[in-house]
Nucleic acid binder design. Structure first.
Lengths: 250, 250
DNA sequence: CTCTCTCACTTGTCCTATACTTGTATCATA
DNA sequence: TATGATACAAGTATAGGACAAGTGAGAGAG
């Protein structure tokens, strides 16, 4: 089977872009330069670039150039996805087991984060994530009643909340995540198979839809001995910076 | 890969401003001088300055000049910077006390991260960070012998390593940070004033210079009860911080 | 000392010209 | 049909310049 020239070029560029060698918004080399670099004609290079545009990876403006697309959604869902996908990419078998599914009275803290009045109803899903059969995260997700109404237990067992949020009309907007440490409580210790009181990473994420309204609150608890976060801080000269800050809690 | 001239200039100016090379309210060089300094036309320099104005970093008055905006902190905060800067931005008085300063044999792990041969020498600085007088972080920094040679105890007591790296010819490049949880050891517990075994956040950051060579390894230990990381995910664009950045440790 | 004017210098806003970029079309070749 | 080569149109970045409008410091008059 003969590989088309423009497909090979598109694949090469795609690899570079997905490896985050360029920050979003950054300009690619001009068609003329790429043409020279690949030893292909401008027609071929353009065809490759247009294929990438079809995938939403790059965009172009006449007179300006080609640049890595800023539309995060496709990349987020298509490429990044969830923790499970990340694990599977590194060769670990990832499973999840839904422990609990149902509508409950929202805890005060969750109600506050979701902008509900006290005692409002939310969908609560408790889940255990497994890596190679060993438990490595206990996840609790609270969703607004309105959003959760359209979800079945089977849904959340098979696909992620993000998929549903992205697929719905609301879309995925911004999110704020806090990362903290805590000591494992009795329940966490039991399902994660660690001693009570051993350190755990506790992450809480509030996700909003595209209109800015909070829709999901997710709490992830990881055993500290087996997990850590890796944050790559791109060059400070670049424009797109991952804002991360430490905060003192009261 | 192209880089627009005015973006490069804007990045350079931004770096200078965020490194606090100008006091707030202080005038920048005139457009004509900047134009000569960068070898660019006034149009280009203006475009760079206007980009910075869009970010709220600088302002201008006709007939007067360009000056650093009164509160550029909001911007620099999002761009990493140091913990102290973030604390001061939120109105907390930040102090630091150097506990220990000297050249030592590098621990194997640090030697590996810095690309040294086993048993190499590094500058080790142990420091306690205080917020409003209360200890909130124990910091250990290992610097390559070459970089550390130019630093005195007084230097590290007054300014951050980050400042020195930015000010030196090497410049600040990328950094990789891991965030994990652990239980407080005896020493941590003593200086942080928490019980032995209580959960702590442990952050390790490897900072490279602009050429990509690792220069600094920093370990920060925070008491979990008083601190947490906040990560804002604009449209989930930056997956480097999302939970997919989670890594299973061996 | 105080007021006013002048002058040098600044930013704000225009203009033209050039080089480079993408967008599009045509024709040739394998 | 995929690819190469070429040409031209439309848009952008940059250089260089001219002029208006505003600021500030100092000179000079009162």
């Amino acid at each position: 089977m003969r590989e088309l020239r423009y497909r090979a070029i598109a694949g090469d560029l795609r690899r570079q872009i997905e490896a985050k060698e360029f920050a979003t918004g950054r300009l690619l080399s001009s068609e003329a330069e790429l043409s020279a670099a690949y030893g292909a004609s401008r027609v071929t290079v353009r065809k490759a670039l247009e294929e990438l545009r079809g995938d939403g990876l790059v965009e172009s403006r006449q007179g300006y150039g080609w640049f890595v697309a800023v539309d995060p959604l496709r990349q987020t869902l298509g490429r990044l996805g969830t923790i499970e996908a990340q694990l599977e990419a590194s060769g670990v078998r990832a499973d999840r087991r839904v422990l609990d599914f149902g509508f409950v009275r929202a805890p005060d803290r969750v109600a506050g984060l979701l902008g509900l009045e006290e005692g409002g109803t939310v969908l609560r899903v408790r889940r255990l994530n497994l890596a190679d059969g060993a438990p490595f995260a206990r996840v609790t997700v609270w969703a607004t009643e309105e959003f959760g109404a359209g979800l079945s237990r089977d849904d959340v067992e098979r696909r992620s909340f993000y998929d549903f949020l992205a697929g719905s009309g609301r879309g995925v907007g911004t999110a704020v995540q806090t990362i903290g440490a805590a000591a494992a409580g009795a329940q966490d210790a039991r399902v994660l198979d660690v001693p009570v009181g051993s350190p755990v990473l506790r992450c809480e994420r509030v996700t909003c839809d595209r209109s800015g309204a909070p829709v999901l609150v997710a709490e992830h608890v990881f055993p500290a001995l087996r997990t850590e976060f890796v944050v790559e801080l791109p060059n400070l000269a670049n424009d797109s910076i991952a804002p991360s800050g430490l905060r003192l809690v009261e």
